[in-house]
Amino acid sequence: MNEWYVYLIVFATGGLVCFLGQVLIIKTKMTSARILVTFVVLGVVLEAVGIFQPISDFCKAGINVPIIGFGASLARGAISAVKSTGILGIFTGGLTATAGGIAAAIFFAFVFGIIFKARTKKL
């Protein structure tokens, strides 16, 4: 029972974040690149002021799967690296924490880019 409750929260909060993104697209005519940038920076800010963790504890994947979570990981990595290694951490922290995601995206894009071919939209 408890498990289902978690999934319900994840569905609702994750949906809400995407809903807000759609509101932004409709209201401001933002392109997808701008939407992604906005949400990443939002994630960085949320982590920096320390309210990402409580949200994450409640929403779980609802906030970590949206690109906000990616921004938060960048900031979290930077903060913890600064605490452990000092100035060098500013440079290494963020990308180290998100290296998995970025490398995966690049690698899969490269592989599938080689295999597949872009096709005309058939709507």
Partner: peptide, 8 residues
């Protein structure tokens, strides 16, 4: 945009 980009 690229053809395969998932935007509206």
């Amino acid at each position: 945009f690229p053809l395969e980009l998932g935007n509206q």
